[in-house]
């Protein structure tokens, strides 16, 4: 009695049981594609917000306008958070999160605190954009073309968040790959 054949599409190394056929990229180009896509998504979010601002100044039928104070502040928070998260040195973060001994444990809390601040800024930008949508546009009961400015704000901050996550994941793909090569 022979053992049953293992089908081609099942790889024991991959995360899922079924690998998607025709989607095999080397990790270096996968990283490049991820970083390009991250920049593209960030750009989409920024221009969604700029579109809302131009709409407010050119085609606006209502008295509500996009101002710096409530409307652009969430984007500012999200951008600060994205900068902080991506400026943390990855090696120190690895040692801080896994408890490695490459740095002294007295310096580990710095990386953790900075990363926490970054994620807090990112989540704060997202939450404050939803707050602006609710408090400035939804609660006074404005209808759709005016409400669209608040929706664009939420879209903008959500895409900045997605872009940050993509950048983070794409930068960690290669690290794990080269780590597995070095073993």
């Amino acid at each position: 009695m022979s053992c049953p054949e293992i089908p081609i599409w099942i790889h024991s190394e991959s995360l899922f049981r079924i690998a998607i056929p025709g989607f095999k990229l080397p990790p270096s180009s996968l990283r490049a594609v991820g970083v390009y896509a991250s920049g593209a998504i960030f750009s989409l979010g920024f221009y969604a917000m700029l579109d809302a601002a131009l709409y407010s100044s050119h085609k606006n039928g209502s008295t509500v306008h996009v101002r710096f104070f409530p409307d652009w502040l969430p984007l500012l928070f999200s951008c600060i958070g994205m900068l902080v998260i991506n400026l943390v040195e990855k090696a120190r973060l690895q040692s801080a999160l896994t408890g490695g001994s490459s740095f002294s444990s007295g310096e580990d809390w710095q990386a953790k605190v900075v990363l926490f601040l970054g994620f807090a800024f990112l989540a704060g930008g997202m939450a404050s954009s939803i707050a602006v949508l609710v408090l400035k546009y939804a609660l006074p009961g404005y209808s759709m073309p005016t409400l669209g400015m608040g929706v664009a704000n939420v879209i903008c901050n959500a895409s900045v968040m997605v872009s940050c996550v993509l950048l983070w994941v794409a930068q960690n793909i290669e690290d794990e790959y080269s780590y597995s090569l070095s073993l």
Partner: peptide, 30 residues
């Protein structure tokens, strides 16, 4: 590699902004 990633990020940003600036201007009938 961080520098290369920054270059790729800004290239993706500028390509999509070149595509979205005319769409944005036309949407607001400028």
């Amino acid at each position: 590699s961080t520098v290369v990633d920054f270059g790729r990020f800004s290239t993706g940003f500028m390509v999509v902004s070149g595509l979205s600036i005319p769409v944005m201007l036309a949407h607001n009938s400028i």
